[in-house]
């Protein structure tokens, strides 16, 4: 009885208008913190955009010019001509495309084997695979480099692409978790109908795994597009540079060409942001999936 009285009494303790006022003030207080914070987060983007459109005279000015006038679009033209921008983009896209193809070819069958096939040694190998994810890449970086050097593949895209044709532990893990969630009755039914294992994999499991595969491919594209250390180690001929490496090298020699550097940085960032807006759910899901279950 007493509890019930308590529960009824408390909400009635304050008149309606007061409660609405408190709620409104509370809501405003949150935005009071979130809006300035959001502005602070956006200022670097604004600064990047603003600088990329400034005539040279307005870049080195104190106090700084916030909005460029006149707006100088030609900075973008300069950025793609003084830096062989599209050539670098082309190189990067070759690496992205062939790596993504490799991931599609190699990682799902391994995940399939680790989740839906019964064989001796499977669980042991899966644990080894997970354990190798804990080892920092710096440990394997040097011997792997020496392997490629001995095979004569330095300054080619091969060391950047080939590993993805042999399976990536993180993707194998993600896809395995997904494959485990597909009902096993589907495979059993197909088997009774005389399907082979390859048939089950290609006709049933792979089509069902499209969302998981999409997540993995988005990850792979982003990692190749943004990747820096791999190209830095393996590529030393300017003709072979990826966009990240090319931009860094250009910056080293022309560190005062701020308008061009900002224009090029925007062009390097834009594809990622566009992809984000198209595949927002995949992004968020991918991050929370790796964040919570990883």
């Amino acid at each position: 009885m007493q509890q019930q009285a308590f529960a009824v009494e408390r909400p009635l303790a304050r008149p309606m208008w007061q409660r609405t006022a408190i709620k409104t003030i509370g809501e405003l207080a949150k935005h009071f913190v979130l809006v300035p914070l959001a502005i602070i987060f956006m200022i670097p983007f604004f600064w990047m955009l603003s600088t990329s459109l400034k005539p040279d005279a307005q870049i080195f000015k104190w106090p700084p010019v916030w909005i460029p006038s006149p707006i100088q679009w030609s900075n973008y033209v300069d950025a793609v001509t003084t830096i062989p921008f599209f050539h670098y983009v082309w190189n990067t896209l070759i690496i992205c495309g062939l790596s993504m193809l490799g991931v599609t070819f190699a990682s799902p069958p391994v995940a399939y084997s680790f989740s839906r096939l019964r064989w001796v040694g499977r669980d042991f190998l899966f644990i080894v695979t997970i354990a190798t994810m804990m080892i920092p890449y710096q440990v394997t970086m040097i011997p792997v480099f020496l392997i490629w050097a001995n095979l004569g593949f330095i300054n080619t895209f091969v060391p950047l692409i080939a590993p993805h044709w042999l399976g990536t532990p993180f993707y194998i893990f993600l896809l395995r978790q997904f494959f485990l969630s597909i009902p096993f009755e589907l495979s059993d039914a197909a088997k009774i109908d005389g399907a082979t294992e390859l048939g089950i994999y290609r006709r049933i499991i792979l089509p069902l795994a499209k969302p998981a595969l999409a997540t993995v491919l988005v990850f792979e594209f982003l990692n190749r597009w943004r990747g820096f250390i791999g190209p830095l180690i393996y590529l030393n001929d300017q003709k072979k540079y990826t966009i990240s490496l090319g931009l860094q090298m250009y910056q080293q020699e022309n560190y005062t060409e701020w308008s061009q550097l900002m224009a090029a940085s925007i062009m390097l960032t834009m594809p990622v942001i566009i992809l984000y807006f198209f595949a927002q759910r995949t992004f968020i899901q991918g991050i929370t999936m790796t964040g919570i279950k990883g």
Binding site: A106, V110, Y112, W119, T129, P163, L166
Partner: peptide
């Protein structure tokens, strides 16, 4: 089947 499906990764794991 299990070994065949996992073959790329068995190579990758051992070599790389």
């Amino acid at each position: 089947n299990g070994i065949l499906f996992a073959l790329p990764w068995l190579l990758g794991l051992s070599i790389l």
